[in-house]
């Protein structure tokens, strides 16, 4: 029972773009789940090395505009943003380029 409850709290991270090439993974599960973006970055850096933090943060230590960290379509814009238990987090490179008219 206890184990099952814990599992429900875990968050899934889906990774797209540059970060995927750095992590070598398309998706991963963090259990126990991080409570904030800051903790999420810490956890990823412990697992995959400091490169993660270097990649996701700009020179001023803020989230780099080249990435978006999303929960249910909502972009988390700062390190203190909260992450609810059990959610799916998407980390993706963002560009506006390329378009079509069809």
């Amino acid at each position: 029972m206890f184990h099952e409850a814990l599992k429900e709290m875990a968050i899934t991270i889906k990774v797209f773009g540059m970060l995927r090439s750095i992590l070598g993974e398309a998706s991963l599960v963090l259990d126990p789940p991080p409570a904030t973006v800051h903790q999420l970055l810490n956890e990823l850096s412990v697992r995959y090395g400091e490169r993660v933090r270097e990649e996701l943060l700009d020179e001023g230590g803020n989230l780099d505009y080249a990435y978006g960290i999303f929960v249910a379509g909502e972009k988390l814009n700062n390190l203190s943003a909260k992450i609810e238990d059990g959610v799916e987090v998407v980390i993706a490179s963002i560009i506006a380029g390329g378009d079509h008219s069809y």
Partner: peptide
């Protein structure tokens, strides 16, 4: 700059995912 690296690695197709998750 990271956006340059991303564009130089995956090109404009990157937009497929970003557009979906960003709505």
């Amino acid at each position: 700059q990271k956006w340059v690296k991303a564009l130089g690695y995956l090109g404009t197709p990157l937009r497929m995912t970003a557009a979906k998750v960003g709505g």
